[in-house]
């Protein structure tokens, strides 16, 4: 790859990080603010309480909503701020050291694990979907895939995985699409009865 191609692909990566992190940051802010509003007034009507199963109250109040003893969205606020800033630096043509790329990638992988755990909790334990949480899922997935492709192919973990990174790089769009499809399928399998009732008034 010529140096010019490298810069353009990093700019694309940076732009994606900035856009997705901004959306994710706003969503986690709303989640945190709603959590505080819910604490000061348990009866408050939240924007995200759309239907009995698309609702955020039970999700936020659940045990899984505060895995480390404090509300999860606080992690998101910090995480999206870091990722968004990194994206802005890339847009400004910054050259990032290998250790930085490696740390960013490890953070992204941890985020992916945490995200998947939260999804299984939401679907199979709490049994409710939360709008802002789903916004966070939707933006975190492209961040993880694109960052993995970029950092691995930049050699953040050595030359051995560089080829693997290139493969992800050229398959990044299908990977994101399939990841989305898997989640939509899981939601459909779990909630098709509720959706049929809500949208079509049909009890399956």
């Amino acid at each position: 790859m010529s140096p010019k191609a490298d810069t353009t692909s990093y700019r694309g990566w940076g732009l994606l990080l900035v856009i997705c992190s901004t959306v994710g940051f706003l969503a986690t802010m709303v989640l945190t603010i709603d959590r505080i509003r819910l604490l000061s007034d348990p009866q408050v009507a939240l924007v995200c309480d759309i239907s009995p199963f698309v609702t955020c109250g039970p999700v936020m109040a659940s045990q899984a909503g505060a895995l480390f003893g404090f509300p999860n969205p606080l992690l998101g606020i910090a995480g999206f701020a870091i990722v968004g800033t990194t994206g802005a630096a890339l847009l400004a043509d910054a050259r990032l050291a290998r250790w930085y790329l490696a740390a960013l990638e490890i953070g992204c992988l941890l985020a992916a694990v945490f995200l998947t755990w939260l999804q299984t909790q939401s679907l199979y334990v709490i049994g409710a979907l939360c709008l802002w949480c789903m916004v966070v899922w939707a933006v975190t997935i492209p961040i993880v895939v694109i960052t993995t492709a970029a950092t691995l192919s930049a050699g953040a973990f050595g030359d051995g995985v560089r080829r693997f990174g290139r493969a992800i790089q050229s398959w990044r769009v299908p990977i994101i699409a399939i990841w989305y499809l898997a989640i939509v399928t899981a939601i459909a399998l779990r909630f098709y009865r509720e959706f049929a009732l809500l949208w079509f008034g049909v009890a399956l």
């Binding site: 050229s170 398959w171 769009v173 299908p174 699409a177 399939i178 499809l181 898997a182 939509v184 399928t185 459909a188 399998l189 098709y192 009865r193 399956l204």
Partner: peptide, 27 residues
């Protein structure tokens, strides 16, 4: 490569749709 990728995504989508459809039928 683009064609291959589109085919892969479409196939996965079709599989996903048939899984959901059969789950609804069985359910």
């Amino acid at each position: 490569r683009k064609t291959t990728q589109i085919i892969v995504v479409v196939v996965v989508a079709l599989v996903a749709i048939s899984i959901v459809a059969s789950a609804i039928l069985l359910g």
